[in-house]
Amino acid sequence: MLMNTPKSLPVKVCKIESDARNTAVWVKHIQNDFEIIWILEGTGLHTINGEQYSLSQNAVYVALPGDYHELLINPGAQGYIVRFDTSRPDQVDSDYHTINESWLYYYFSKTPVLRLDAGKHDKMKNLIMLMEQESAAYSSLHSEINSKCLQLFQLYLRQHIELLSNPSCTYKMNSLLKQYFWLVEKDFKTQKNVEYYARELNVSANYLNHMIKRASGYPASYHIRQRLFQEARKKAQYAGFSMKEIAYYLNFTDISHFSKFFKSMCGISFSEYKREELKRAV
Rank of each mutant, 00 (worst) to 15 (best):
K260N: 14
T111Q: 15
K213H: 08
I99M: 14
M265K: 11
A24D: 15
G50V: 01
Y80Q: 03
S18R: 04
F229T: 01
S242Q: 06
T23R: 09
K234D: 04
K15P: 00
R280M: 10
V13Y: 02
D117L: 09
Y218N: 06
I36N: 01
L177D: 00
H223S: 00
A220T: 04
L130D: 11
P89E: 05
D67E: 12
G79F: 05
L164W: 09
A236Q: 02
H97V: 12
V13E: 00
E35L: 13
F241I: 11
Y207I: 02
E134A: 11
Y156D: 08
V184M: 02
L157A: 04
L208S: 02
K12G: 03
K172S: 14
P167T: 07
P167V: 06
K263P: 01
C14N: 14
A215T: 04
W182K: 06
K148Y: 14
K192I: 07
N174S: 10
I48W: 01
M3R: 15
Y238A: 13
W26K: 15
Q179S: 10
N202Y: 09
Q57T: 15
V282G: 12
L250G: 02
I145G: 04
K235D: 07
M211R: 05
E195C: 08
K260D: 12
I255E: 06
M243F: 08
H160K: 06
Y238S: 14
S269D: 07
P219E: 03
S264A: 15
F270L: 04
L183K: 06
Q230A: 07
H69K: 10
S221D: 12
N100H: 11
L164A: 13
Y156N: 09
K235V: 06
L45Y: 06
Y171Q: 02
E231L: 10
N32C: 13
C14K: 13
R214T: 11
R88D: 13
Y196L: 05
R233S: 07
K274S: 06
S175M: 11
V60A: 10
D122T: 15
C169H: 13
N209Q: 07
